[in-house]
Nucleic acid binder design. Structure first.
Length: 399
RNA sequence: GCGGAUGUGGUGUAACGGUAGCAUACCAGCUUGUGGCGCUGUUGGAGCGGGUUCGACUCCCGCCUUCCGCU
């Protein structure tokens, strides 16, 4: 029982499953496909909401579990919801916290009923049931909520992943029921959307099974979870294809956690509409920057005295005002400015990449565009490999 | 000038009469629903000179360095 037909497909690519659509939320609409920077604790690390606005970021994703642990959903509710709290005008998505089952520091275990977490700030035990998770997300007042899922890891056995699929479906149903009841009296247009999450690891039969079960329950959108965790690209794309063919064509599809530019474009060609990942921001902090020429690793010695901007073809304020040498130095010193400038640039890059992708789909040049970007990254990855080789050779010579 | 102490990778340190360990920095790679400062790996070292010893970073002597105190 879908509560609202809130997704419209405007353009379809003839040569792939890529499409441009509009997703309507209580906070406004957003054109798909789009990429969401991760704002776990109600901020994209080192980047203010005003910055996000100036970059053109229309959606971000925060974390229910972390915000519940601190400052607590009551406080955020009092501040008129997550969007107002952080003064972000775009769309706020909240991740349920299922992903924190990945983290040894937070995760204790889970029962049939609920997940048991450790509060990372105080060390106390916290039990989060699907119902509780829904209520927290409603209190946070995000525009899109995610179901509490049970996320298996890459190294888990097929049996364990099957068990995660079972539990994920069970919890999805409980999320759906609670979420519907809680919003019964709210007009459709003011309701928080709820997305289901599908699991299944790298096993196509489990992926399909999970997709059928989640689709049967019915959600405003469908997310693929448990991918981009170290499996091969082929395995990842096969998993996407397996679930995409089961999800209704007119529902938005969200690939959770994927954030490499090439991977994102590939997934778009398979019919995915939404992405989120720490990849651009975490890479930025660790000195890997995305450019029109592919990745550059700012810590490489050759950038020490480089007075060029990160990307001469980029028109973001970082590239217009700062040199590689300066950003390299600031990052090496672990200064906030280094984190801010590099993060700003990488988010700007991803945001432009998505804009260009949507334009390419409309212009019917999507596959060409995708190929071009893939080639650029192939080349810069090759440069990295060569660098590594060169490095090893010069090492051996010395020995 | 006299006396005492000191000297180990770029930096900070450890042990030992028998393969010089650790940290950090540097360098290279990794990074995917984030507790920002994480993971893997590479490079790089005994102040100088003499002596004792099968063998000395280690023990002895001289010089030098640096620090402290005294006149």
């Amino acid at each position: 029982m879908r509560i609202s037909p809130l997704f419209e497909i405007k353009h379809k690519d003839k040569n792939s499953k890529a499409r441009v659509g509009i997703l309507y939320t209580k906070k406004g609409s957003i054109e798909t496909p789009f990429f969401m920077p991760v704002a776990t604790k109600a901020s994209v690390k080192h980047i203010s909401s005003k910055d996000l606005e100036s970059i053109g970021v229309n959606a971000i994703i925060s974390n229910t579990f972390v915000l519940h642990a601190k400052p607590g959903e009551k406080l955020i509710k009092k501040m008129n919801g997550l969007g107002n709290f952080m003064n972000f005008k775009g769309i706020n998505v909240t991740d349920s916290g299922g992903f924190q089952m990945y983290s040894d520091r937070c995760y204790i275990g889970s029962t049939e009923e609920e997940v048991i977490f450790r509060n990372p700030f105080t060390g106390e035990k916290m039990c989060i049931s699907p119902e509780r998770d829904m209520q927290i997300q409603l209190d946070l007042d995000s525009d899109i909520a995610m179901c509490l899922d049970s996320m298996p890891l890459l190294h888990h056995t097929k049996d364990e992943i099957a068990e995660a699929v079972r539990k994920t479906s069970l919890w999805a149903e409980r999320c759906r029921i609670y979420h519907n009841n809680a919003q019964k009296r709210i007009p459709l247009k003011k309701r928080q959307l709820l997305f289901g999450i599908m699991q299944g690891g790298i096993y196509e039969d489990l992926r399909e099974k999970s997709a059928r079960e989640i689709v049967k329950i019915g959600f405003d959108g469908y997310a693929m979870g448990g991918l981009a965790l170290g499996e091969s690209k082929e395995e990842e794309y096969r998993a996407i294809i397996a679930q995409k063919k089961i999800v209704p064509e007119d529902s938005p599809v969200y690939l959770m956690g994927a954030g490499h530019p090439v991977e994102v474009l590939e997934a778009i060609s398979l019919g995915v509409d939404m992405f989120d990942s720490r990849f651009p921001t975490q890479n930025a902090r660790r000195g890997t920057l995305f450019t029109s020429q592919g990745r550059i690793k700012i810590f490489n010695n050759k950038y020490e005295r480089d007075s060029k901007p990160i990307d001469p073809e980029c028109d973001c304020f970082v590239c217009k005002n700062y040199t590689r040498a300066y950003i390299r130095y600031q990052l090496a010193q672990e200064e906030g400015v280094g984190f801010r400038l590099s993060s700003y640039h990488n988010i700007y890059y991803m945001t432009r990449l998505m804009e260009q992708t949507r334009a390419a789909i409309k212009n019917k040049t999507f596959l060409k565009f995708k190929k071009r970007v893939a080639r650029i990254y192939e080349k810069s990855d090759q440069d990295s490999k060569n660098n590594f080789k060169k490095f090893n050779i010069s090492r051996k010579k010395k020995l």
